[in-house]
């Protein structure tokens, strides 16, 4: 409660508009499979924007950030693990093809369907987040997901970009390890 009060006070200093923002419609699911926590996440309110960008021939790069936080009462939550998965779509308008590139795995694929390219960016299925061995059953964890979108083939690496770009929160999901066999799907 104390922490909530402190951070409520701190964040009350920021513009309310930023906190309110546009309504983010997203779906985030996690499941544990063979000792690994996977996450399926999809955003809907970015689809029109991304489709418009790649449809007009501009490359689009997105980064999905998954961060597992250990809850603490009197201080900031502790970050246990954080991974960042990138995807990129490079349009080729004259041939009406869209190159889909997985920046993390290096997989490259062409498609003639712009919507498929769009979904390639707005959906992240079966993303391996963390190995359960890192986590403790006695602790409460939260998986927070953020989406960083950039127009172009590179992310914004400027110093002010790192300050101002906080990403778009896709929501948070409680991560509670089952006491029994944790190989079962949650």
């Amino acid at each position: 409660m104390f922490k909530v009060l402190i951070f409520s006070f701190i964040f009350s200093m920021f513009p309310v508009a930023y906190a309110a923002g546009d309504m983010v419609v997203e779906e985030t699911h996690i499941h544990i499979e063979k000792g690994v926590v996977y996450c399926d996440v999809q955003t809907f309110n970015q689809e029109a924007y991304i489709l418009k960008v790649i449809g007009s021939g501009s490359p689009m790069t997105v980064f999905w950030q998954f961060e597992v936080l250990q809850a603490r009462h009197y201080w900031l939550d502790k970050s246990v693990v954080s991974i960042r998965l990138g995807r990129q779509v490079i349009p080729d308008l004259v041939t009406q093809r869209w190159l889909m590139r997985d920046l993390s795995g290096g997989v490259v694929k062409y498609t003639n369907d712009a919507e498929e390219a769009m979904h390639f960016l707005t959906q992240m299925q079966h993303a391996a987040v963390v190995d359960v061995s890192v986590l403790s059953e006695a602790m409460n964890y939260t998986l927070e997901t953020k989406l960083f979108t950039y127009e172009g083939e590179n992310e914004d690496e400027s110093w002010w970009g790192s300050i101002t770009d906080w990403g778009e929160s896709m929501g948070s999901v409680n991560l509670q390890l089952p006491l029994a066999d944790n190989n079962e799907q949650k």
Binding site: K52, V53, S56, G57, S58, P91, D92, L93, V94, E151
Partner: peptide, 17 residues
Amino acid sequence: SARSIEADYRTYKELDR
């Protein structure tokens, strides 16, 4: 020429966006 048109089109659309 086609690539030039594509580049201009892309640039124009970016600016328009």
